[in-house]
Design a protein around this nucleic acid. Structure first.
Length: 326
DNA sequence: CATGGGGGACCA
DNA sequence: TGGTCCCC
């Protein structure tokens, strides 16, 4: 059985970056570059619920919106194969979601729920839907994220980032508690386990990031969150795409966190919040357990949360599912 | 036919 | 290598 060296593996700083409704985002390219600059500078100082965000990023249909700026802020969906009932939706902007439009609806169905929806076609090559434009747009993002650490592409619109080295370097010569100013994007971070304390969320977050009595691993995560906030702004400036991110000590938690606050937000999972988070987490939410294995855990072992799963030893699970799966 | 289809991980 | 599972 492989045993990880705790001091090396337990305090890694891992980010999972997930593009917001990505396919939609590429269709509405801004016509004028200065428009981007203006929008970005507004974005930097913006409150989380600023209405302009609704026109900017709340859309998986964003690749398409970059190409066609007029689609920004419009209910938009990306469709593949329109010959049968209007084709299948593979991405739906947040504006369209408000009307009840859902992925895996047919185009015709979406039109009924939301008559003003803009449907954009996925390019076709050799009679098949061709996602290369979105894959290439994803590469633009990866090239930016790679500046601060090693990237692992998990899908067309998802990237894992190992920021351990960069976070350690920052902690060594520019620790958060010594920064005189903290960017808005960092203060907007969600920190798990901090939500329910006090009334002023942003002040709490600011305090969490700058407190000097933090554990080393908390400080590393804080540095990671700084770096991710910077990267997300660079992605917005250079590609016009928004994304959401999770920052944690491993991939599983980072992935879990990136989906907790969307779009255009980031979530940190401090070590101290992990056990509470997992205790009640439905097992099906965990990557790799969304399918038959997760169902088997529920039905055959009565395991419904990750906390339940902890009652089973590794050996016991291996009896049921084999050495590796167990 | 009616979510399409592809890609990655793991296994025998 | 082909089959199955899982995810996007």
């Amino acid at each position: 059985m492989p045993v990880a060296r705790p001091e090396l593996s337990d305090s890694r700083v891992i980010a999972h970056v997930d593009m917001d409704c990505f396919y939609v985002q590429d269709s509405s390219s801004l016509k004028v570059r200065s428009d981007v600059r203006r929008q970005v500078s507004r974005f930097k100082g913006m409150k989380r619920n600023d209405p302009i965000l609704a026109n900017w990023s709340y859309c998986e249909s964003v690749v398409e919106q970059r190409k066609q700026q007029s689609l920004r802020g419009q209910p938009t969906a990306v469709v593949q194969y329109n010959s049968w009932q209007g084709g299948g939706l593979i991405a739906v902007s947040y504006e369209a979601r408000k009307f009840g439009v859902k992925r895996s609806m047919r185009g015709d169905e979406a039109k009924q729920v939301c008559p003003e929806i803009h449907l954009v076609q996925v390019p076709v090559a050799r009679g098949k839907a061709d996602l290369n434009t979105y894959r290439n747009a994803g590469s633009e993002v990866v090239s930016i994220l790679s500046r601060r650490g090693r990237c692992e592409r998990a899908s067309i619109d998802e990237v894992y980032l190992d920021l351990t080295i960069a976070a350690e370097a920052m902690l060594a010569d520019n620790p958060p508690e010594c920064l005189e100013t903290i960017s808005e994007e960092v203060v907007k971070s969600h920190v798990l386990g901090l939500e329910e304390v006090g009334s002023d969320a942003r002040e709490n977050v600011r305090h969490w990031f700058t407190r000097s009595d933090a554990s080393r691993r908390d400080k590393l995560l804080a540095c990671g969150a700084f770096i991710v906030a910077e990267l997300r702004l660079q992605v917005l400036e250079e590609t016009e795409f928004t994304c959401s991110a999770g920052i944690a000590h491993n991939k599983m938690l980072a992935k879990l966190a990136s989906g907790m606050n969307k779009p255009a937000q980031q979530t940190v999972v401090p070590f101290s919040s992990i056990s509470k988070l997992l205790r009640t987490l439905p097992i099906k939410k965990m990557k790799q357990l969304g399918g038959k294995l997760g169902t088997s855990l529920q039905i055959d072992l009565g395991v419904n949360t990750v906390g339940d799963l902890l009652q089973f030893s590794e050996e016991k699970l291996q009896e049921y599912y084999g050495v590796n799966t167990g």
